[in-house]
């Protein structure tokens, strides 16, 4: 589904000026105050842009020049809000199935299973923790029949394991359920795992746009998330010795994974060690030959883009280490990863 939006909106000190023209899911990335949530509210029909045009899947939703402004309920756009907005008078089950015609048995079952909502079904939002509210809010958007989902920091408050499972669930939603997702996050890992197109924003404006690996590691954008830390994500299939991703088998030390299952693996960019020569006698279980595709970064930090058996991976090292190892595009290195650094999702 194609999302075309060209909107301006001034709210307080924020002057939002956003242009989106993209087929399929994409992410809005940027620090808090960048205008991401305001942009979502405009597309959802909850905030009226000062000027512009919004078209989703060929349907004109808003046009200030022609006086078109479809109501939020007519847009086919479900939102998972950052502040959850669960209905306090309804139990979790009724929150999940609130959308009219939204009680799709399959989606409800899959979402509840993946997000672990089963035990919460009869509880009221007032009795839930922040992380549980996040899960219900994300689940409610996923269960709704809307073809476009606007997800505003939906993983906030989720622990690493749940986050990885949620990423798997969103990939399933985009695949099997044909949902288009506009994902808002200040986490590079989630953005990279979920979309192939990201718009980086700062102070209401677009600062960069393109594939996540390129955009997130470019100098201008890097400064926006430097403190977050980058997290890689890839999918693999469970085999007897480990997880096969590309041509390599990643050892996880886990015995509880079902053979043949497809799973999502996440790995922090700072959890990978690089070596010029193949290291011997290490405790680390994963030692792979890696080819450097490129190096980006800003002062002090280098982001090394690797190809490990066909899987693209970003590794963070200090600029000093990068120059000492003479890391440059085309270099052949060894990547070392502890089994316990790998996080396994659904």
């Amino acid at each position: 589904m194609k999302i075309e939006a060209s909107i301006t909106k001034t709210v307080g000190s924020l002057a939002l000026d956003l242009a989106i023209d993209h087929e399929g899911s994409l992410a809005l990335f940027g620090p808090s105050g960048a205008g991401k949530s305001t942009a979502l509210a405009c597309i959802a029909g909850l905030v009226r842009p000062d000027r512009g045009q919004i078209t989703v899947g060929g349907r004109l939703l808003f046009d200030s020049a022609r006086g078109v402004d479809r109501g939020a309920h007519q847009r086919g756009v479900a939102v998972a809000f950052q502040d959850h907005r669960l209905f306090p008078h309804l139990p979790v089950r009724d929150n999940l199935t609130f959308a009219p015609d939204g009680d799709d048995g399959e989606r409800l079952e899959v979402v509840c299973g993946a997000l672990g909502l089963g035990p919460l079904m009869n509880r009221r939002p007032g009795d839930l923790s922040g992380g549980e509210c996040s899960r219900v809010s994300l689940g409610r958007a996923l269960v709704s029949p809307a073809p476009l989902l606007l997800l505003d920091e939906p993983m906030a408050g989720l622990d690493a394991a749940l986050r990885t499972r949620a990423i798997g669930l969103l990939q399933l939603a985009m695949g099997r359920w044909e949902k288009t997702i506009l994902y808002v996050s200040h986490s590079p890992a989630e953005v990279a795992a979920l979309t192939d197109h990201v718009i980086a924003m700062d102070q209401g404006r677009v600062v960069a746009e393109g594939p996540p690996m390129n955009v997130l590691t470019s100098g201008a954008v890097l400064a926006l998330w430097r403190d977050e830390g980058f997290e890689n994500s890839f999918t693999g299939r469970v085999e007897a010795e480990g997880i096969r991703a590309g041509r390599e088998i990643w050892r996880t030390g886990r015995q509880d994974l079902a053979a043949g299952a497809t799973i999502v693996v996440t790995l922090r960019a700072s959890d990978v060690i690089l070596a010029r020569n193949r290291p011997e006698t290490l405790s680390a279980r994963n030692v792979f030959p890696a080819r450097v595709a490129g190096v980006t970064g800003s002062s002090g930090v280098a982001l090394v883009h690797l190809d490990i058996g066909g899987v693209p991976l970003v590794v963070e090292v200090t600029a000093a280490a990068a120059s000492e190892l003479a890391i440059a595009a085309g270099a052949e290195l060894w990547a070392i990863v502890k089994a316990t650094s790998l996080r396994i999702g659904a």
């Binding site: 959802a44 029909g45 909850l46 109501g71 939020a72 309920h73 847009r75 086919g76 756009v77 479900a78 939102v79 809000f81 502040d83 907005r85 209905f87 306090p88 609130f98 959308a99 009219p100 015609d101 939204g102 409610r140 709704s144 029949p145 809307a146």
Partner: peptide, 17 residues
Amino acid sequence: DRRLEDAARSLGESPGG
């Protein structure tokens, strides 16, 4: 809370609903 009404609208519920 108006934000709850917004949430309901975005889930496709009509103003009367």
